[in-house]
Amino acid sequence: MGPIRGLWRDTWWLWCVFTALVLAVSYAVTPFFVILIPIFAIVFVYFSFMRYDDQGRNKGDLM
């Protein structure tokens, strides 16, 4: 759970903006765009485990 909390701590505002934009576009254009929310959730989990360690600290530069 550490990596997920670490990424959420650092980027919570960005994910809230993404969700709000997806919901707005879904309402204005077509509900089909709601499918992006689970896709964003998968991307969030992927990047949390790639960029954060078990304690929720940023791994820093991977090189």
Results as ranks from 00 to 15, higher is better:
Tyr52Leu: 06
Asn58Ala: 08
Arg5Ile: 09
Gly6Asp: 02
Phe18Arg: 08
Asn58Met: 08
Phe18Thr: 09
Gly56Gln: 00
Ala20Val: 06
Trp8Gly: 05
Trp12Tyr: 14
Gly60Pro: 05
Leu62Phe: 07
Gly6Pro: 05
Ile42Asp: 07
Phe47Met: 13
Pro38Gln: 03
Leu21His: 06
Arg5Leu: 13
Asp53Ser: 04
Val45Trp: 01
Cys16Pro: 08
Arg51Asn: 10
Val25Cys: 14
Leu14Phe: 13
Ile35Glu: 04
Val45Cys: 03
Asp10Ala: 11
Gly6Trp: 04
Phe32His: 07
Gly56Thr: 00
Tyr46Arg: 12
Ile42Cys: 13
Gly2Ile: 00
Phe32Ser: 09
Met63Ser: 14
Ser48Asn: 04
Arg5Met: 11
Leu21Gly: 15
Phe33Ser: 15
Arg9Asp: 09
Gln55Lys: 10
Gly56Ala: 01
Ile42Asn: 01
Gly6His: 01
Ala20Ser: 05
Val45Ser: 06
Phe47Asp: 13
Ile4Asp: 02
Val17Met: 15
Ala24Trp: 02
Phe44Arg: 08
Ile42Thr: 09
Trp13Met: 10
Leu14Met: 12
Leu23Tyr: 00
Leu14Thr: 11
Ser26Arg: 03
Asp54Phe: 00
Val22Asn: 13
Gly60Phe: 04
Trp15Asp: 09
Phe49His: 10
Gly6Thr: 04
Ile35Trp: 04
Leu62Trp: 07
Trp15Met: 15
Leu36Met: 08
Phe40Cys: 12
Met50Ala: 15
Val29Leu: 10
Arg57Met: 04
Phe40Asp: 09
Ala41Asn: 08
Leu7Ser: 06
Asp10Met: 00
Ile37Val: 11
Ile4Phe: 07
Phe49Ser: 05
Val22Lys: 08
Trp8Tyr: 10
Trp12Cys: 12
Ser48Phe: 02
Ile37Lys: 04
Val43His: 14
Pro38Tyr: 03
Leu7Tyr: 04
Pro38Arg: 04
Asn58Tyr: 08
Gln55Gly: 03
Arg51Tyr: 04
Ile37Asp: 03
Tyr27Ala: 15
